[in-house]
């Protein structure tokens, strides 16, 4: 004790701590510079901007406190519609993506390596193809008169059976959002599928062998072993997919422009319209802040609920 007392730990300042670890900081600097320039600075500036009435002329920018936020929730009917649509979109797309990708991964995992690679490639192709190309293809698929979907449904006798006219998938309020959801689902499965396949490969075979010896059924094995052990990956997929789907934009811009009758208006599309069509940067930034708070809160609760027993 006396020895320890003779050499009390020096109280180091934060700057000294950084200086001591300067080699490590230098290593991460190349990654942090673009982060600061392209993420952190715009984020802080966006927060600041949300309290301003800001158009293209910087000289006329005016601090207005919370006015933009008040207007969003009291006078902007379209924003409220966009908010509802975005939540609905997330509620449709995220569970479908997670469930389908787990389901596919479990089916594909036992297949021979070549077959597994083929499935991976097939589902990953839309991820690398780019949203614009896919949106263009889907516009054609959904076309009321010349589209592939209606052509197939007509051949299958769907319209005759139900006695209804051909559906304009993107032209009707009842089907437009679902059609966009279908497009987003089609290109959102690739990445989770690869992650789940990798995660399945990390589950020890011994666990399955033991369960089989104990007489567990296939369903029990999946429910009691596979699914719990996929939990870290599921959490990751859930959080990243939720964030991505909240930011749905390209399909709206290219396929519906938020219509018909605002049925596919989403928050990010509304941000885009206000900032880049109406030149209301401050108001657009306020919408961005609302989106940040929503996504941040949901991700936080997802971590709270699902992340308790996860080991990273």
């Amino acid at each position: 004790m006396t020895v320890l007392a003779a050499y009390p730990e020096r109280r180091r300042t934060w700057w000294q701590k950084i200086w001591d670890a300067r080699a490590a900081y230098l290593f991460i600097l190349p990654a942090y510079i673009p982060f600061i320039v392209f993420v952190l600075y715009p984020l802080i500036n966006g927060l600041r901007l949300s309290f301003y009435e800001a158009g293209v002329n910087k000289a006329k920018w005016r601090f207005i406190g919370f006015d933009n936020f008040v207007r969003l929730f009291t006078r902007d009917d379209v924003f409220i519609i966009a908010l509802k649509n975005t939540f609905l979109f997330v509620l449709i797309v995220v569970p479908v993506v997670v469930v389908i990708s787990i389901f596919l991964a479990v089916i594909v995992f036992p297949l021979p390596r070549a077959a597994q690679s083929f499935v991976r490639m097939s589902f990953y192709m839309p991820v690398v193809s780019g949203g614009v190309v896919l949106a263009m293809v889907w516009i054609w698929i959904f076309n009321r008169d010349f589209g592939l979907l209606n052509y197939l449904l007509e051949i299958a006798g769907f319209y005759k059976l139900l006695g209804i006219p051909k559906i304009g998938w993107l032209a009707q309020t009842e089907t437009a959002l679902l059609s966009l959801a279908m497009v987003v689902i089609s290109w959102s499965i690739g990445q989770p599928l690869i992650l789940f396949l990798a995660a399945l490969g990390n589950i020890s075979e011994e666990l399955y062998d033991a369960a089989k010896i104990d007489g567990a059924s296939g369903w029990q094995i999946f429910w009691k072993i596979t699914l719990p052990l996929l939990r870290p990956t599921t959490l990751f997929v859930l959080v990243t997919t939720t964030i991505n789907v909240f930011q749905v934009f390209v399909v709206v811009l290219l396929m519906t422009l938020g219509g018909p009758a605002n049925a596919t208006q989403t928050i990010v599309y509304r941000i885009y319209e206000n900032a880049f069509v109406f030149y209301k940067y401050g108001y657009g930034a306020a919408m961005g802040v609302v989106l940040l708070l929503i996504v941040g809160s949901i991700a936080y609760f997802q971590f709270k609920l699902l992340g308790q027993e996860v080991e990273y």
Partner: peptide, 8 residues
């Protein structure tokens, strides 16, 4: 008398 896809 108007094209049915007028909305899109």
């Amino acid at each position: 008398l108007i094209n049915p896809d007028v909305t899109t």
